[in-house]
Write a protein that binds this DNA or RNA. Structure first.
Lengths: 166, 166
DNA sequence: GCCCGTCACGTAATAACATAACACACCAAA
DNA sequence: TTTGGTGTGTTATGTTATTACGTGACGGGC
């Protein structure tokens, strides 16, 4: 049950939190956005966990660190992060995850493993996405898309077969 | 603000509720499923409204009709309907809608109009869906997919232009 | 007939997720 | 110095969902 959600690959992320925060810092400076202490800490929390966290999980960690302890504190920080592309909300889980490809404008797709709870973010090619085709033919104008798949990740599939090799 | 969610087309659905319920009845009989009074009534409610309803909206209507008034009553009925393909949950809205194409095995895609709250269910071709491509290349096995787009439906686009023709 | 399993339904209680509304601090522009 | 905007904090409340437990209905095996 060890989630290793970066595309389901194991990796050592000793540096990647700091790197990602530093990049977010630069991005915000360029864009005139304020990456305040709460917001920065919230981003760090998501990056450290490297999985989908509920708003109340984030809130608890923020409170431990001396920030406010009431829901709006977490929701506001998460709003900022999601609006500006540093994090995403997984609708299926009512949970949030740090963006794996910040900076790019993208419509992310998520693969959610129901066995180990890992979540992988995949890039999509918006131009021939299914939803866009549908939208084109119906005259619907898309402002935001949710693409989420639930299932079993390669690691858990392998484990299942090892245990129960039929 | 009049949602007309069947593919955003206007239509007269005086008969379609009864027809859909009758079909669900047949399907359940064949499959050995029990379309009990609560479940049938819940389906009727979704069909009558012809839009996405929250579980508590459904619950209130069920209670009016003499069924239980506690949340599990609605959630269990909605579970049955969604598990067996008579309804879908719209994750983005935390709401439920009657299936527009019952009987088919399908991965539905939804177009959610943020102006009039209409929701259209579109058929998808699962074989060359984006998510399947991603799943194939990563070795992920999908059990359920969520495809939802938020935006503006053709009707509301037309209205906007009429009011504000730039 | 009786026992027992399963399934559906009902209720109470609570958990989990999310927002409204208001007060205060800070800072920059007028 | 005042004013307006933005960000943070709080209280209170609203909304969505689940857990836990009890009861009745039905069917199969003895």
């Amino acid at each position: 049950m060890d989630p290793n959600p970066i595309g389901f690959q194991k990796h050592d992320h000793s540096h990647c939190v700091a790197d990602a925060v530093a990049e977010a810092d630069r991005t915000c400076q360029k864009a005139g956005l304020q990456l305040t202490p709460v917001r920065k800490r919230a981003l760090e929390i998501l990056l450290e966990e490297h999985r989908a966290l509920g708003a109340y999980d984030v809130l608890a960690r923020l409170a431990e660190d001396g920030f406010g302890s009431q829901p709006p504190v977490a929701y506001r920080a998460l709003d900022f992060l999601t609006k500006n592309g540093f994090a995403h909300k997984i609708e299926r889980l009512n949970a949030f995850i740090a963006c794996a490809h910040p900076g790019d404008i993208h419509t992310p797709a998520f693969l959610i493993c129901t066995t180990c709870d890992a979540v992988a973010e995949a890039e999509t090619d918006p131009s021939h996405s299914l939803l866009n085709q549908i939208a084109d033919t119906t005259g619907f104008r898309i402002s935001r898309a949710v693409l989420e798949a639930e299932g079993t990740c390669p690691n858990c599939l392998a484990n299942d077969q090892a245990k129960d090799p039929k």
